[in-house]
C-alpha cells in the first residue's frame, strides 16, 4: 500500500521510511512541516497517512489539525497519528468525526514493529488503532456511572484498540464464544443493534466514550 509520512524529526522519519519499505509498502511522499501535510495528502491520495502530532512551524498540534482537516477534505482517509505523549483530548478530537480508519498511537509503539505494522494495516482498511494508554485514559473518564462490568470494559477497551474477537479472547484467556457474549451485552447496554460488524464495533466504542 501507499503511505504518506508527516514527521519533522529526520531520524524518526528515516526510521519510519525504513520500517514501511522493509515490510513491502511504498512511501509515496514525506511532509516535513505542518502546512505541507494537507496539500501532500490531496495530491497523493495515499492508502494511509502516518502523521506526527507536533510539527513545525509552531511545534504544537499542527499535525493533528492537518489530520482532521485532511479527513474533512478526503472523507474516510485513513490516518494514523503518532504522538509524543498521550492526550485524550487529541484522540477525542480525532474520533469526533468518526472512528473509521483512525489510529492514535504513542511514538514509542513504532518500535514494536509487527504490532505497529498491524495497526497501520488495520487503519488502512478502515479499522481503528488506539493506543492502550489512550483507551485507558478515555475509559477512566467513565468510572462513575458505568453500565458495563469490569470484564465488559476490558473487552471494549481491546475493541477500541482495534483487536478482533480471536485476539481479544486470546489476550483475556477466554473462549471466543465468551467474547462474543460480552460484546452482545455491550451492544445491548449501549443501545446498539446486536449485529457484530466492524463498523458496529467502532460505534460501540464511540457510544461508550460519548455516554
Amino acid at each position: 500500500m501507499r503511505v504518506v509520512i508527516a514527521e519533522d524529526n529526520a531520524l524518526l522519519r528515516e526510521g519510519l521510511v525504513l520500517l514501511i519499505r522493509s515490510s513491502g509498502h511504498e512511501v509515496a511522499a514525506v511532509a516535513e512541516t505542518g502546512p505541507e501535510i494537507v496539500p501532500t495528502l490531496l495530491e497523493q491520495r495515499p492508502d494511509v497517512a502516518v502523521i506526527d502530532v507536533r510539527m513545525p512551524p509552531g511545534f504544537r498540534d499542527e499535525g493533528l489539525r492537518a489530520a482532521i482537516e485532511a479527513r474533512k477534505r478526503i472523507p474516510d482517509l485513513p490516518v494514523l497519528v503518532l504522538s509524543q505523549y498521550v492526550e485524550q483530548t487529541y484522540a477525542a478530537e480525532l474520533l469526533a468525526a468518526g472512528a473509521r480508519g483512525v489510529g492514535y498511537l504513542l511514538k514509542d509503539r513504532v518500535s514494536r514493529i509487527t504490532e505497529f505494522l498491524d495497526a497501520l494495516q488495520r487503519v488502512a482498511e478502515g479499522g481503528t488503532a488506539l493506543d492502550p494508554e489512550v483507551v485507558s485514559q478515555l475509559m477512566n473518564r467513565h468510572r462513575q456511572i458505568d453500565p458495563l462490568t469490569a470484564r465488559e470494559r476490558e473487552v471494549l477497551q481491546l475493541m477500541a484498540e482495534g483487536r478482533d474477537n480471536a485476539t481479544i479472547a486470546a489476550m483475556l484467556v477466554v473462549t471466543e464464544r465468551a467474547v462474543h457474549k460480552h460484546i452482545g451485552n455491550i451492544f445491548r447496554k449501549l443501545g446498539l443493534p446486536a449485529t457484530d460488524s466492524g463498523h458496529r464495533r467502532v460505534l460501540a466504542v464511540l457510544a461508550y466514550l460519548n455516554s
Partner: peptide, 13 residues
C-alpha cells in the same frame, strides 16, 4: 524520545 524511537525501530527491524 524521537532519537530513542528511531533506535528502537532499528533494533526491531
Amino acid at each position: 524520545q524521537a532519537h530513542l524511537v528511531s533506535v528502537a525501530v532499528r533494533l526491531g527491524l
